[in-house]
Design a protein around this nucleic acid. Structure first.
Lengths: 335, 335
DNA sequence: GGGGGGTTTTGAATCGTTTTAATGCAACCT
DNA sequence: AGGTTGCATTAAAACGATTCAAAACCCCCC
């Protein structure tokens, strides 16, 4: 038994396929009685439209694609939920891809989105993909950058001020009297890492005393935190840090675990501050100080912005929204 | 400038569109020289195939859809990553939908997957959707249930033994001398909740002493944990629980926070055991005992199973793989 | 009764790819 | 030489919806 198509629905309702299509896509054009008859026929046959055919003819896919850096990081799932909450009201499906910070995966998803002729894409890029994004845009797919300002200012973006975040975290550590600050995160090329690290260095410089020790990692999870702190603990005692600025909370939690295991007292011997303020930061063994980012808000703002661009791609005013992070002090830096 | 199509590629390479299509889909059928010429043309034009057209003609979408209960729960993102790791090798995109335990959202995603004629769907259902799944299957979409055994045994599934999990958690609490066990989770209709709760009740019964107090919540996050424990603390002192069995770790962490805030000592006054053993359980303020579930493994097993079904839907042997959970004892139940 | 204006419905063309069956061509066998 | 085999290529017919221009219909007024 083949599945029902518009023509079957049309036959059952006693109208032409064109009318069925109108009923589905432009209900205002169809008289109420006909509409009801068609709806009845649809229900009876269990008709589900073939989206490939629809898309081919209509030339547009309603779905929105999103590529996040790390689906295992609650920060990004918060962002994704912010996006979802906006899109669900618009009846637009969200296709969520996880690049896991791997350029190859990122490319795979970009290919996919391009093949699917998505109407819009939200992306937190791993590497420089401006040319890919440009091509997407030329093909009619709108693009908004998330948590990353385009250097070339060519695409709209929503981001959170990483410079400020890096500064307030570092100033806080300096204020509580720490001078040798270990920065753990990576890879160094990642925009978020680069900016936060640079801001930390600048803060130290302006303060006039102190030092940043950079332990680069190849990803940003708890394991990376454990690896990073190991590097720093391997230093001669005199050179060891008295505070850690972790590039995100997952890393910070890894650091905390490793330090506890090694018998290092937190915050007495080494203070720790994380980044993101994910829910788990507050409930950690030693509640974690962090730089809170309005993740959910960033997600919904990005989604709204994308919908605006989709609605009118010609209105070529590129917008950049920058949200502010906020210092949250907990026990891991209270000394 | 309109985007390049097969016919443009064909013209540039001096062949027919059919040959280009063959080059793309059945490279063995095309001579090496022609292949090279076509590839060159594709690169030169930056040709990206229109997937809607491909799908319409080929009748099949390579993508796999997945619907999870809660994207904010690390357990499910672990499962998703297990799935992803298998699919990426097969060059199959994964479309991830979050039902957030809301039937309406679940339906929205099922509609979407049906419209898209997905080749396969992985789902952890919120409510009974057997008829929807049956329809999907009849339309040619393979289905595998995740973390949920189909009562009707009609679909293959991969799950983790919830009865055993509920039992070992409860027995552990009984062994450390607790008798009044509060079970927090919900909604009560959710299969995982139902099974774990039933197993807990049975364990108490077999033990001959003890009691289960069920505090039902409408979701399974930290907030639910705080709400649930509030219900139980409102009981007259004599009737209050001396242990909590939380239906998952997020709930357990919420309970832990609320108890700490209320000045209740954990585990002395009330012991807590969670479920899932997400990474954050170990690094909680008071490290959380839990029932470890092999999430990543379940994901990859489910994906492999789905690929098998897709490869040969006729081979009608429905398979059920049940993985075993494992008790992990930490400080929250050590007394 | 004919004409005008507005709404509703429809026939036919179309979206861009894959597929099928057929063709062309060269080499090989007897 | 004639016939066969096999490979590479192609023309043309799908796939299932949407769209557009045109037809049909309705109601009302002159």
């Amino acid at each position: 038994m083949p599945v029902a198509q518009v023509r079957d629905v049309a036959a059952l309702a006693g109208v032409s396929p064109a009318t069925v299509s109108n009923a589905l896509n432009h209900p205002a054009k169809v008289s109420p009685e006909t509409l009801a008859r068609i709806q009845a026929a649809i229900d009876e046959l269990g008709y589900i439209r073939n989206d490939a055919a629809r898309q081919l003819r209509a030339g547009t896919n309603r779905a929105i694609g999103m590529i996040v850096l790390d689906i295992a990081n609650p920060f990004f799932t918060d962002v994704a939920r912010g996006v979802e909450d906006v899109l669900i009201d618009e009846q637009r499906p969200l296709i969520l891809g996880n690049s896991a910070q791997e350029p190859a995966r990122e490319t795979t998803y970009l290919d996919l989105f391009e093949q699917q002729r998505m109407s819009g894409v939200l992306i937190t890029p791993v590497v420089n993909v401006i040319d890919r994004l440009r091509r997407l845009r030329d093909r009619g797919t709108s693009v908004v950058l998330v948590d990353r300002m385009s250097r070339v200012k060519e695409f709209s973006s929503v981001s959170i001020d990483d410079r400020m975040g890096g500064r307030i975290a570092t100033e806080h550590l300096l204020e509580i009297g720490r001078r040798r600050i270990g920065f753990i995160g990576g890879p160094a090329g990642l925009a978020q890492v680069k900016t936060r690290l640079a801001a930390a260095r600048k803060a130290v410089e302006q303060h006039g005393s102190g030092e940043i020790l950079f332990a680069e990692t190849d990803s940003m999870n708890a394991q990376a935190g454990r690896d990073g702190i190991e590097q720093l603990l391997a230093l001669p005692k005199k050179q060891r840090p008295d505070a850690i600025f972790a590039a995100n909370d997952l890393v910070a939690l890894g650091v905390l675990q490793a330090l506890t295991l090694a018998g290092v007292r937190v915050p007495d011997d080494i203070a720790i501050i994380g980044y993101d303020d994910i829910d788990f930061a507050a409930s950690a063994a030693i509640p974690l100080s962090s730089v809170r980012q309005p993740a959910h808000q960033m997600g919904s703002a990005a989604a709204s912005m994308l919908l605006d661009v989709i609605a009118d791609p010609a209105a070529s005013t590129v917008k950049h929204l920058t949200l502010k992070p906020e210092l949250v002090v907990r026990r891991s830096t209270s000394a």
